[in-house]
């Protein structure tokens, strides 16, 4: 369990978290009270009025109107309070503060892409500053996914052909788990990432360095992208078959395509495969590779090509 959390909850990482937990504990203690009343009561009666000795007739107690009204009305009042409380917090979750920083979120099988106005894009790692409200504008490229950060107590479905949004304000720096919670197929449980909360200064320098070109050598940068852009979820580099063809020895290999033609893998083919994966599909595979159009810039594609050449 989360060492900073409680029995029921992971640590509180956002402004809304404590409010959610408070309502939960209110309902929890109320439930424990009524639970003891009902099941404790039934076990007590079971013991107290257990059959003893000879059979006897039992008293004729058919009903008691005032008692029945009492135990209908009291729970009704209590759930009404819970309803109002739950709804008020929900409204707070739904009204995005005006000065929020915006991040675009794209969900697809089976990874998350985060795009910043300044040009940086990340995969499976959402980087945000602490103590600043962040608005996520989300959409999906394929099926429905759902964005969930337990420590922030926020969740929102991510739909194809529609934007949904969500906001939060992180209250402490650190790394928090991020899950997809709408079932989306084979890689659903791998569709997880991190939210990295940085101090203001760290965030500013991160944003500046991630938005410009990289200064790593191309093949190394490509290797990093292979991991950070989630290519590894479908392509291995050690020859094991996966959702897509292995990258081992891919460069120069001759591939048969589903339309019957065959092609030798070169720079142009790779570039094409990354940007328009559905137009040339390798025989024996499903056309499930997402397009990286708009996700990878040309420097990054060059780096990936350089990297693929080294995988032997």
């Amino acid at each position: 369990m989360d060492p900073n959390g409680t029995l029921f909850f992971p640590e509180q990482g956002s402004t809304i978290a404590s409010e959610v937990d408070l309502l939960f504990h209110f309902v929890l203690y109320l439930s424990i009270f009524f639970f003891i009343l009902v099941t404790g009561g039934s076990f007590y009666f079971a013991w107290r009025f257990r059959k003893k000795g000879e059979d006897q007739f039992t008293p004729n107690i058919s009903h008691n109107t005032s008692l029945e009204i009492f135990w209908t009305v009291i729970p009704t009042i209590l759930v009404f309070i819970i309803f109002i409380w739950g709804f008020k917090t929900y409204l707070k979750m739904n009204v995005t503060p005006a000065n929020s920083m915006e991040v675009n979120v794209t969900a697809q099988k089976w990874f998350w892409t985060f795009g910043y106005k300044e040009g940086a894009t990340t995969t499976n790692e959402l980087v945000v500053p602490v103590n600043k409200s962040v608005k996520l504008l989300m959409s999906s490229q394929d099926v429905i996914h759902s964005f969930f950060v337990p420590a922030f107590r926020v969740k929102m479905d991510v739909l194809p052909n529609r934007y949904t949004s969500l906001w939060f304000e992180a209250t402490k720096t650190g790394e928090f788990d991020l899950f997809c919670t709408e079932y989306c197929g084979k890689g659903h449980s791998e569709m997880i990432g991190k939210v990295k909360v940085l101090s203001d200064a760290e965030f500013a320098s991160w944003l500046a360095s991630s938005s410009g070109p990289s200064d790593l050598p191309p093949a190394e940068y490509g290797k990093e992208l292979y991991k950070s852009k989630a290519c590894f979820t479908c392509h291995s580099i050690d020859g094991t078959p996966s959702v897509g063809p292995t990258f081992k020895g891919v460069f120069g290999r001759t591939e048969e395509l589903t339309d019957g033609s065959s092609i030798t893998v070169d720079e142009n083919y790779i570039r094409h495969s990354i940007l328009e994966p559905q137009s040339q599909v390798v025989k024996g595979f499903q056309p499930v590779m997402p397009t990286y159009q708009g996700v990878l810039n040309s420097q990054q594609i060059d780096a990936l090509i350089a990297f693929l050449k080294t995988v032997k």
Binding site: I16, E19, V20, L23, F24, V27, L28, S31, V79, I82, F83, W85, G86, F87, K88, T89, Y90, M93, S146, F148, P150, R153, V154, K155, T181, E182, Y183
Partner: peptide, 15 residues
């Protein structure tokens, strides 16, 4: 009852 309270359901939904 916990799941009926919207703000709690947001956290618990699909878990």
């Amino acid at each position: 009852i916990m799941l009926g309270a919207i703000s709690l359901d947001i956290h618990f939904h699909d878990t």
